[in-house]
């Protein structure tokens, strides 16, 4: 220790001084500060991107976050503002119904007049995707995002059978295959985890059911997008806020049906009030066994499926459910990559 305590300078015959130290530190600081400024530009850019309203560019379906600036021809997110489509106080909750950010059990005690739910009768879904198109045009959804989508999958297998109707050189087969079309959308859960995690109370559950986002308040932190077990939320690349299915709240407040329900060719989607025992949804749910997606998570989904096989209700299992790639499928995945390589 003793020899250590001798200052290093004395060996070299120099004494320490503050100016030298400051000079050294400031030189280092200057170099690092310049590097920091470069990095700060990046932060600034990221911060400024929050208000980007750039000219629309022709883009494909595959756009990563921040690049999807095309909005089906609407380069300007404020276009036709006079129509009132951005008048959020009128659109989201015109009747000033109570809204809930947590403690959703209180909703029942407050005795709301309606409880809007959606019943999807899978026996009638043809997988035509017209609900997807209707939703996109009704709500002006940016390219690459969907508030509702229809997963088309094959369940079952092709098995060798003596008298099979698929005849090849190798033998004959029977196809024990079913095609399952599963329309998916926000479940407007009675216990929504996405609402509870919002740090700024920008998203809420309205007393009559819909889970909504106020885009004037959302800070776009993405917690709710991660917290939704159904991936029903996305970060809107135009408004830079979290966005989701609203059950077409402005339509139901006006006494209309949601766009996807109106357009459904097979009448597979049924919308109505669960508190009214005479409504079609109440009748359907009273007469047929219904399932919800991922019931094990305990979110109490309010979109009910008739004819949903239990295995399909939970996470997709590639072993039993082979997805057919429609344009709403997730192409940003290893599964999609494998499509181009020969399967084993």
């Amino acid at each position: 220790m003793a020899e250590n305590e001798r200052p290093a300078q004395e060996k070299e015959g120099r004494t320490p001084d503050r100016r030298g130290f400051l000079k050294k530190a400031l030189t280092l600081g200057g170099v690092l500060g310049a590097a920091g400024a470069f990095g700060a530009l990046g932060i600034g850019k990221a911060l400024a991107a929050g208000r980007a309203g750039e000219e629309s560019q022709p883009g494909g379906m595959l756009q990563a976050d921040g690049e999807a600036l095309t909005w089906q021809g609407y380069a300007d997110p404020n276009l036709n503002k006079g129509d009132g489509w951005q008048d959020w106080s009128r659109l989201l909750n015109p009747a000033k119904l109570p809204i809930y950010h947590d403690n959703f059990a209180q909703i029942k005690a407050a005795r709301p007049k309606h409880h809007w739910v959606l019943v999807v009768d899978l026996r009638k879904c043809t997988g035509c995707q017209s609900c997807v198109v209707a939703c996109k045009s009704e709500n002006n959804i940016p390219v690459g995002n969907y508030r509702t989508w229809v997963d088309v999958g094959q369940v079952g297998k092709t098995v060798a059978a003596a008298g099979g109707d698929v005849v090849t050189d190798e033998g004959s087969y029977v196809q024990e295959v079913k095609v399952r079309n599963i329309p998916k959308l926000c479940n407007h859960c009675d216990n929504p985890p996405c609402v509870t995690v919002c740090p700024v109370k920008a998203t809420f559950k309205r007393a009559d059911g819909p889970v909504l986002v106020d885009p004037r308040l959302c800070i776009g932190c993405g917690t709710c997008v991660n917290a939704c077990p159904y991936d029903a939320r996305y970060l809107n690349p135009i408004s830079h806020t979290a966005d989701k299915c609203t059950l077409c709240v402005e339509r139901i407040d006006a006494g209309l049906l949601p766009a996807c329900v109106t357009t459904c060719v097979g009448r597979a989607r049924v919308f109505g009030d669960l508190l009214d025992p005479k409504s079609e949804v109440s009748q359907l749910l009273a007469h047929y066994p219904a399932e919800v997606r991922k019931p094990e998570i305990g979110t109490k989904p309010q979109v009910f499926y008739i004819g949903l096989n239990g295995e399909l209700a939970t996470a997709d299992n590639p072993a039993s459910q082979r997805l057919i790639y429609t344009y709403t499928m997730n192409t940003n995945s290893t599964a999609y990559q494998k499509l181009n390589s020969p399967r084993k």
Binding site: A46, L47, G50, P199, L217, G222
Partner: peptide, 14 residues
């Protein structure tokens, strides 16, 4: 988290 958020200018809401 603010640099990752899409609307960091609304930080005061926190």
């Amino acid at each position: 988290p603010l640099a990752d958020a899409q609307q960091p200018s609304r930080w005061w809401e926190l």
